[in-house]
Each structure stands twice: as C-alpha cells, then as structure tokens.
Design a binder for these strands. Structure first.
Lengths: 161, 161
DNA sequence: CGTAAAATCACCCCAAAGTATGAGGCCTGG
DNA sequence: CCAGGCCTCATACTTTGGGGTGATTTTACG
C-alpha cells in the first residue's frame, strides 16, 4: 500500500530528495571551503547557477505552453499543379464531430508517436491517471478498443498525421 | 483577483513555502551545530531568490509563442486529378537486413491492423505464447520497445503498408 | 454569476503486453 | 550428419493498458 504510493509518486519524491541532497551538498561545500580564500564567491556562484536553473525549470514546468495553432480551411481550386506530397490537413469537421477535446487530441498525437501512458504524462506534465482518463475517453469517442486502432481511425479521419 | 491568483499559482506557492521550510530547517540545524556569520546566509538567500527570479524571467522570455493562428489554404483538387496513392512497394532489402522472418512479418502485419496478441494467435492458429515470442523478437529486430513503435518503424522501412 | 464542459487526479481491478528462460521439433546448407 | 535458424510452446514474472467510478478544480460561456 505504502510501497504502491511511493512508486506512484516516485518522481515527486525524487525531485524532493534531489533538492534536499543539493542543499546538503551546498552546505557541506560551504563548511569545507569556508577556510579557503574565495569560498564565498564560489558558493555564491554555485547558488546563482543552481537557482537560475531552478527558476527556468519552475517556469517551464508551470507555464503550460500555450501554442495553439488553428488551421482554417480555405478551399482553393487548382487545375494542374499537384504537390508531390499532399501536406497534412487537419480535418476540423471530423474533429468537431468526434467531440475530441484539445487535450485529448494532444494525448492522441503522443499515442500515435508510440509513447507509453507514463511518457505522455511526463511530457504533458500531468499524472498517469489523467492520461488514462483522456485515452479512455478517446477510445469511446473514436469507437475503438485499443490505442493502435485509435491511431488508425484518427489517421483515416485526418485528425492526426 | 488575489484569491484567484493564489489558487492559480498554488503549486508555486506550495513549492516556495516548502523551500522556505527547508531553509529554515537548515538554519535551525546550523544554529544547533555551528555559529557562523549571519550576513553570509542572508546574502546567499538573496542570491537564491534573485537568480530563481532571473531563471523564471529567462524561461518566460525565451519561450516566446503564445497564441498563434495559422491560416492554411487547403488545396481542393478537381475530380480528375486526385493524387494517386503510390502503390505499396515492399522493401525487401530492409526486410532482409532487419532479419525479420516470414512468420514474424505476418505477426507484424496483424499487429499493424490493431489486433491483440490473442486475435493474432487465433488468426495464425498458434498459441498466445508463440505470438508473444514473435512480437518480442520483432521488437528486438526493429529496435523498438512497443508495438506502436514497431508499426511506425516498419512503415518507415516499407516493410509493411 | 452560475452552469456546463473540460481537465485533473485518485483508487480499484482486471486484461493485455512484454521479458526472460528453457525446450522440443523441423528444415536446410555445409 | 549436425549446427543453426526458425517455429512452436510453456511457465513465471513485471509492466502497461484499459474500464469503472467518483471527486475536485479550471475554464468557457450565456
């Protein structure tokens, strides 16, 4: 029970532990180097670097990338010039009809890339359970039973590449 | 507004608070064990805060795009000029190089159709274990970890449609 | 402002997928 | 003939996937 809980929050715990370890290390370094001449500068520099990294990490972790690309259909009739490889065109109609939400679409795309649910969770910064929920909903909306079938269907419908 | 802001950045605040708690703990430990100059600690804390902020600012600065709307003109071709789908050409060279056997290829094709291992076993009239063995070998030979990746890779190599 | 949809997460349980290992039968080329 | 690849299957185990339920929080919209 406890073990399960631990393994489930492995990442969180790891984060915490590594931060703690880092601070202890810094403390130790301080004690070690306190006698040296430029210990203070080194220590300050280390803090600066580490906390800059922490800040970057925090920002990236907490600001959900809000890149939203909206593709609008605009028919253009052509006579003869056919591009060799027709570019992917998101079929918004099919997407809307299926009732698949934005987040679900993201999950679907990652599924199509061959990610495991855990990998998807890591890349979207959500929990494994959330990914499962999304994919479950996806299967219902796409009327399929397995992720592979979901990929096939979504490709047929031009919902994903 | 303030409340909203608080609830929005709950994670951040929690993180900050726990960091603060950690520092206080360390401070307390220090007071317990050693008596050192206070200026240093304050200075270090200041550096930490400032550079965390710097990191956040940097990250936010460097990840620029927010909402972008891309309008793509979708080419619609006249009836006669529907781009022909190039006929599937099995890449025998890649197939031989990969070392995939005949039976494994059959399994691979059924995997790509979205069949479960049990369904594959039924269709090939072999046991479930056999299918598992084949697919395991496939993953090694294709250098992938999951069946979805195997499908992708096999399609890339023109081993399957 | 209130509501509905979307997103998030948890817990339980079971099924499917995948790993590791061993083993026996069947061809085939040297 | 016999070594080696292939196909078959088994057993045991771990990991991942998926169903179901319920809950809270965000977000979007009238």
């Amino acid at each position: 029970m406890l073990l399960k809980s631990i393994s489930r929050h492995k990442q969180t715990i790891l984060y915490g532990l590594s931060m703690a370890a880092l601070l202890v290390l810094l403390r130790w370094l301080q004690l070690r180097l306190i006698i040296l001449e430029h210990a203070f500068e080194l220590y300050a520099a280390a803090i600066a670097i580490i906390f800059t990294a922490l800040g970057i990490w925090l920002a990236l972790r907490l600001t959900k990338p809000k890149v939203r690309t909206v593709i609008v259909e605009k028919p253009v009739y052509l006579e003869k010039e056919i591009p060799a490889t027709p570019p992917f065109q998101l079929n918004e109609k099919a997407l809307n009809q299926s009732g698949i939400s934005k987040r679900e679409l993201e999950v679907l795309q990652l599924i199509a890339e061959g990610c495991s649910n855990q990998e998807i969770a890591d890349r979207l910064f959500v929990s494994l359970n959330t990914v499962k929920t999304h994919s479950s909903n996806l299967f219902v909306k796409l009327d399929v039973k397995r992720r592979i079938q979901a990929i096939e269907k979504a490709k047929q419908l031009n919902i994903i590449q």
